[in-house]
Write a protein that binds this DNA or RNA. Structure first.
Lengths: 241, 241
DNA sequence: CAATTGTATATTGTATACAATATACAATAC
DNA sequence: GTATTGTATATTGTATACAATATACAATTG
């Protein structure tokens, strides 16, 4: 949705991107890595001084984040970091499961050897990272996202991979927490290798099964986590005002 | 994505909705019913005088429409009504096909008798409308959209029905033209009845097949139409400046 | 004392002014 | 004559000012 211009020379024009996009990225990152908690109010004045920008690009950023589902902009009442219930999580993973398996099955027919190798390489990298004992979860999460996105893109349907990207970003903010388990990552790596193998063999039934299980298992972990969370920290009123 | 507040009394607070949303609706309608053609530039000044509003809510409306895919807002270059190629159409219907059959299969397990009756009623209404000889295509299109949306919603996954809504709205602007064929609508009505029957019987395989065919056929018609269009009216430069 | 209403304050909605960039076209150099 | 560069104009990006609305809390009434 957001435009990204690339040029022949590998020059970084990032800071020339519209201010609204840079602001949106900052807020999005803050939400994803937990610096901004679900439910907290985002008043324009606060963010204005926080980022040192004026309200116009700030408001545009908030509206963008609303359309992405990270915040809810309520007319005349301001913006709030969106909250995700365990029902939401089930819907998100349910939809992602359907779209990812569809994309993967499409990819079976069109994927190149290069892309398959890239998928393998990403999985190998995850393995070395987890065994590094440094527990670099941010890198692991990025590698994991890259794997799934590369696979989705390989399906060739841009709408589908865009939806998947959107769905994944919704739960990303929780992955920092619930993925911090070596066992879960080991499982993930195992699943990834099986998925690659199923694509190699163009075994679509097996592929669908693997991807659905991969999602269902992630969904279960996250739902458990959220339920725990809501038990230990009840109602949790606005904590930023 | 856009908020809609409803209240216990059936009072219409439409004009109290944020100006940006009302502007966005106007532009969206204009794009859907063809008053604004794909490729035409939307300069802020022009729209400003056209709607008699200032730039801020106007810009916010354009960004919203960008996120919905109706316009492309290019940084520092302005907004353009998005163009849809026949490749785009194939991706849109491909994605919609997958999501609609998934939603319909989910609906099989949860749909109520009332909803099934509503689906039937909508189909009956389409039939009386087409036989009215008045060729009220706008009504037909609305009934058709309502049918598919009601069915998607019956699946119970809000993310999925939101994606479907988005995909349908993308092609809506062409439906005014290519749906203007009695034969296509007759086919549609026939398909709808079969779909309802498959849900009644909870025959998921048949259901999936019907919905995929329904989409594939619509996709073919629209692609043919677009290819014809691009042959008869070649490159077609910016026609609004 | 509870419920309601009025008022001040906080906050968002909208309009406008100024700054930065892109586009088109003319002038110049080759 | 073509290509390049410079400049004016159009257009968008950002900042700020003003208007409208919501919220919280005090005052008033029953």
């Amino acid at each position: 949705m957001t435009k990204k211009q690339s040029n022949s020379l590998n020059v970084d024009f990032t800071n020339l991107a519209p201010l609204r996009d840079r602001i949106a990225s900052s807020i999005r990152s803050a939400i994803i890595d937990g610096r901004l908690q679900p439910g907290s109010r985002l008043t324009e004045q606060e963010l204005e001084t926080m980022f040192g920008v004026s309200r116009t690009p700030l408001r545009e950023a908030l509206l963008l984040l609303d359309s992405e589902g990270f915040v809810n902009v309520l007319p005349r009442r301001g913006a709030v970091v969106s909250e995700i219930s365990s029902e939401d999580v089930q819907e998100i993973y349910g939809a992602k499961s359907i779209l990812e398996s569809a994309a993967a099955k499409l990819a079976c027919d069109t994927i190149t050897a290069e892309t398959l190798d890239e998928l393998s390489a990403l999985t190998d990298e995850m393995e070395t990272t987890i065994n590094d004992e440094r527990n670099d979860y941010r890198t692991l999460l990025n590698l994991n996202s890259e794997f799934h996105q590369l696979l989705s893109d390989a399906g060739g349907n841009k709408k589908i991979s865009q939806f998947i990207r959107n769905l994944r970003s919704q739960t990303l903010r929780y992955n920092y927490i619930y993925l911090s388990l070596k066992s879960r990552i080991d499982n993930s790596i195992f699943d990834h290798r099986n998925i690659i193998e199923a694509i190699r063999q163009k075994n679509k039934e097996q592929l669908e099964h693997l991807i659905q299980e991969h999602n269902a298992s992630a969904c279960r972990s996250l739902c458990d986590f959220i339920r725990q969370q809501s038990l230990s920290q009840p109602p949790q009123e606005l904590n930023m005002e």
